Amino acid sequence: MTTLTGPQPTAGGVRPHGYVVADAVTMMRRNLLHMIRYPGLSVFTILGPVVILLMFVYVFGGTLGAGLPGVDPAGGREAYIAYVMPGILLITIAGSAGGTATTVSMDMTEGITARFRSMAISRASVLAGHVLGNTIQALIAVTLVLGVGVLIGFRPAADLLEWFAVAGLLIFISFAITWIAVAMGMQAKSVETASNWPLLLTFLPFLGSGFVPTESMPTWLQWFAQFQPFTPFIETVRALLLGTPLGWNGVLAVIWCVVITGIGYAWSMTIYERKSVR
């Protein structure tokens, strides 16, 4: 008979705290394998923002860029690609939430999550695996979309430290948005509903400073645009990449990440615990 060593599951099938990280990594690997085996969602996450980028730069860029403050009309398109790129990166992150909500909902409806709940693994790790896996997928997508931007003329002015700051912020934003997506996937009654809910997140960069300055919007819309989370996200990324004034946007971006992460985690775990006692 084989003797098991190390910490064993406690009563009720709950793993000791020492296994929480290992369980989360195992679940993360499972989700990354899904990305490899079913690449359709990942491809769509990349192609969608790329199409939006190309359309806005080559169809609308000349006109919209010429309307930016202090821009020579003759160089409107070049100025606009620099302005719009941060918003495109945030759309990429928001778009990745749809894949997360869909996979979470599939696990819920197919009984896979219920099976995990009956196993001796950390409950938090089941959801954390989705979050960590999607955060990695979102960063891969952001890198590829940024590469397309560079190919068509985007020229960031960030130094090495600023690049590290951009990477750190994008990781934090992806982490926060993914927790919301997990909650949406668990709350949804069907896979189809789960895939639609995160579309609300992809509209927020359009209703912020992603494509035009908020000052150009009607007064009633300016208030929403200035105080919703994606505007400080975009403005912070833009300031770090292009050297524009940062102001309080960096602080607001971090605060919003903390708030969104807390809401998403609490929402997800509440649903998970409620369904665990059924």
Rank of each mutant, 00 (worst) to 15 (best):
V148D: 12
L89K: 01
W256I: 05
L242A: 01
L64H: 04
R238L: 06
T3D: 11
S105L: 04
I140K: 01
R77L: 09
V142R: 01
T231I: 05
F233M: 11
V148K: 03
V84E: 12
S42R: 00
A24H: 15
M217E: 09
A239D: 02
T236G: 03
V251A: 11
V71C: 02
V237N: 06
Q137R: 15
Y19N: 11
P198N: 13
R238P: 05
T63N: 10
V277G: 08
T92L: 04
D23K: 03
V71Y: 03
G40T: 07
G48C: 04
V237R: 03
D72G: 09
G262V: 07
V191E: 12
T10V: 10
G12M: 06
W267D: 08
T244L: 08
W197T: 10
V258Q: 03
L151P: 02
Y272T: 12
V126E: 13
V150A: 08
V191Y: 05
A266L: 14
E78C: 05
V150T: 09
R123D: 13
W256E: 04
F60K: 00
A114D: 15
D72K: 00
F60E: 04
N196C: 06
N31H: 14
I93C: 03
W220M: 14
R155N: 15
N249S: 13
L241F: 00
P198M: 12
V131I: 14
K275W: 15
Y272Q: 12
E215C: 03
E110N: 07
T236E: 09
V142E: 00
L144G: 06
